[in-house]
């Protein structure tokens, strides 16, 4: 039971990883293969910041999120923007190149050692709810995930910026006819993508280990969360992430090292049986 609850908490983080990816996938019909490497990079930034300032990682996390927003914005303007409108291949090739660069830059800067973020007393704290002892950190993680999902969905649903994003993802050419600066929308979206992922990275770093080579796996989990939930659905991504987290937890109950394998298999089965993801089930009803 505890393993499954943990799986759900981890899954909420996968949902967060996926939220950013879903944003760029919906808008630009492309994905950033270096997404996971940026997640790991944010975790390193948080680690370095908290060691340097001698404060709790959670204190540094907002600053890292802002930094990663800027990184995403600039990356989009300088690099990814040039690949758009040239077919499916260039964005894939360029972001794969970026992934290789980032992994090796991190290897140079931070060595191949496995690291984690020290949650301090927060790591062991727990509270009793309905006879179950729940860790404060997982609960906080879940609360932050829900808050970010809620905020994203509110921004999308009822602000001018959210409207512009939805219009752009329907058709960027028609959006330009409306006076929407779509390049700026793309860049802001990429910035938000990395900022949200940075927050997820901080929480993940307090519960698990990371090293420079763990990025691609994070990217796959993020993508699986998006597809499991159904492309284009914000809350679907959270549901997809939690399903993925639960699958991995269930797998690791059979054998501790089966977690990711079972997660991948569930993803492939859903892809085969339910190409529209979980949210297509709801729509059908």
């Amino acid at each position: 039971m505890e393993v499954l609850i943990n799986g759900a908490f981890i899954g909420a983080l996968y949902g967060l990883y996926g939220l950013g990816l879903a944003l760029t996938l919906g808008l630009m019909r492309q994905i950033n293969l270096a997404h996971g490497d940026f997640i790991v990079f944010s975790a390193y930034l948080t680690l370095q910041g908290s060691l340097l300032l001698g404060v709790h990682p959670l204190m540094v996390l907002p600053v890292v999120a802002v930094v990663m927003f800027v990184v995403g914005f600039v990356l989009q303007r300088l690099v990814i923007e040039r690949t758009l409108g040239r077919g499916e291949m260039p964005p894939i090739l360029v972001t794969f190149g970026l992934s290789i660069i980032l992994q090796n830059v991190m290897l140079e800067l931070f060595s191949a050692d496995t690291r984690n973020l020290n949650p301090g007393p927060l790591g062991a704290a727990s509270i009793e709810i309905a006879g179950l002892s729940l860790g404060v950190l997982p609960l906080l993680t879940l609360a932050v995930s829900f808050a970010i999902f809620w905020a994203t969905s509110a921004v999308f649903g009822s602000t001018k910026f959210g409207r512009a994003i939805r219009a752009t993802s329907d058709s960027d050419q028609t959006a330009q006819l409306m006076g929407i600066n779509t390049s700026r929308i793309f860049a802001v979206a990429m910035g938000l993508t990395l900022a949200i992922s940075a927050i997820a990275a901080g929480f993940y770093g307090m519960r698990g280990n990371f090293d420079p080579s763990t990025g691609p796996e994070r990217m796959l989990f993020a993508f699986e969360a998006v597809i499991l939930g159904g492309v284009g659905s914000i809350w679907g991504t959270l549901a997809g992430g939690i399903l993925l987290g639960l699958s991995q937890a269930a797998g690791s109950l059979i054998n501790p090292s089966y977690g990711p394998l079972v997660g991948h298999l569930v993803f492939l089965v859903v892809l085969l049986a339910l190409p529209g993801g979980l949210m297509s089930l709801r729509r059908r009803q």
Partner: peptide, 14 residues
């Protein structure tokens, strides 16, 4: 070396 390879791949694609 790998950083150089990645950079070259990006530059050539762009």
């Amino acid at each position: 070396y790998f950083i150089l390879l990645g950079l070259m791949a990006i530059l050539v694609t762009l």
